[in-house]
Each structure stands twice: as structure tokens, then as C-alpha cells.
Amino acid sequence: MTHQQLTSAGKPPVTPVRQLTVYFSNSRRGARLARQLAVQQFTEWTGLPYDADPARAVALITAELASNAVRHGSLPGRDFRLTLRLLPAGFRVEVTDTQPERLPPPVIAEPIDDETSGRGLLLVEAYADCWGCTAPDSCTKTVWAEVCLRTPDA
């Protein structure tokens, strides 16, 4: 698993097989709906069941990225954007918010045992095959993560 702190150049573009972009309200409900939509699209596009490991990874990753956008990356009255991409070898989740100056840390520290938060990006790191952040302009940032669909022997 890799984490990439990227500039506007970002990761080399991969032409998606399918793509969907939806805006959600800056709320816990918006984050929950984003997670539900991501899993629904994942299962529809890949044909994998809801309880497959990759679908669970997509659910967890989307929940963490969307809740981070709501909690740390939004301005009052501004929505966050969820983009889902089915790639030739994987599934990419992108969450775009309106706080480009609040980038994820380049190194994720282990949280202190009694803290009740601070584990979200550790989970993204554990479940994503790769993830990172781009700041395409001065008004937004996108945190993305990819889940590979190939088996290790492929």
C-alpha cells in the first residue's frame, strides 16, 4: 500500500471504464449516503457481492474520506464531491472538498490509545492498494484511494 502526497500534476491519468460524480451535503447524512452509493456502484459495475472483501474496502474507504471531508475539509454551505471510477484493474474513490490548505499528513502517526479519533487514514492506508491527495486549484483538494480488483497471482 502506498500513500502519495501529490501536486496538481497528480497521478498519471488512467482512462476510466466507467465514472460517476455526485455532490453531497456537508453533513453526516451526506457522508453516509456517499458510502452507500459507492458500494452500490461498486457492486453494480464489478458484479461482486456486497459482502466481498473489495466491496467492504470500498465502503470503509469512502466512509473515512467522506467523513474527513465533512469534519475537516468543508466550509459552511459548501458540498463535497464524490467521484467513483471503475478502472481497468481497480476501483477509485475520490472525495473533493473546499479546504486545499488542510492536506492529509505525509506520514500517518499511530494515535494515542485513549484518543477517540485519528484512525481514519490508518484504515484507508490498510485497506487501499494506493491512496493520495491532489490540490488541482486554490479552492479544492481531492483525496483518492484505489482498490485493486485483480487477484495477487494475476
Rank of each mutant, 00 (worst) to 15 (best):
D137A: 13
R150C: 00
L48D: 12
D53F: 06
Q36S: 08
F91E: 09
D137V: 13
P104E: 00
A34S: 12
L103D: 10
R35A: 14
V95R: 05
S27G: 01
T116P: 01
P16K: 07
E115H: 10
V143C: 08
G120S: 00
P104V: 02
C148P: 01
A38K: 02
G73S: 02
V124Q: 07
P100L: 04
A154V: 01
F24S: 02
T98S: 14
V22Q: 04
A55I: 09
P13Y: 13
L6Q: 08
A57R: 15
S138E: 15
D79W: 03
L65S: 12
V17I: 15
D53V: 09
E110P: 09
T151P: 01
S74L: 11
P111L: 03
A55K: 10
T96R: 10
T43S: 14
F80C: 02
K141S: 14
R102S: 01
R102L: 07
V70L: 01
A31G: 13
E146L: 05
L87D: 06
Q41N: 05
C130T: 06
S67V: 04
R78M: 06
R35G: 12
T7G: 15
L103F: 05
D137S: 14
I61Y: 11
T151K: 13
E115D: 15
E64S: 10
I112Y: 06
L122Y: 08
C133T: 04
R102C: 00
L6T: 02
S27I: 00
L48P: 04
N26T: 01
P136E: 06
L37A: 11
T83M: 00
Q36A: 09
T21E: 14
T15W: 04
P13E: 12
C130A: 07
C148A: 09
V22L: 04
V39N: 07
R35V: 09
C139M: 14
P54R: 12
Q4M: 02
V143N: 07
K11Q: 14
T21C: 03
V147S: 00
P104A: 02
A63T: 13
Y50M: 11
D97S: 11
A89N: 01
M1P: 13
A52S: 08
D51L: 08
L6V: 05
N68Y: 11
Y23T: 10
E94N: 15
S67E: 11
T98K: 04
G120L: 00
A55S: 13
F91I: 08
S74E: 12
Q99D: 07
D79G: 01
V124F: 03
L6E: 03
T46G: 06
A69H: 05
L84R: 10
F42K: 06
I112R: 09
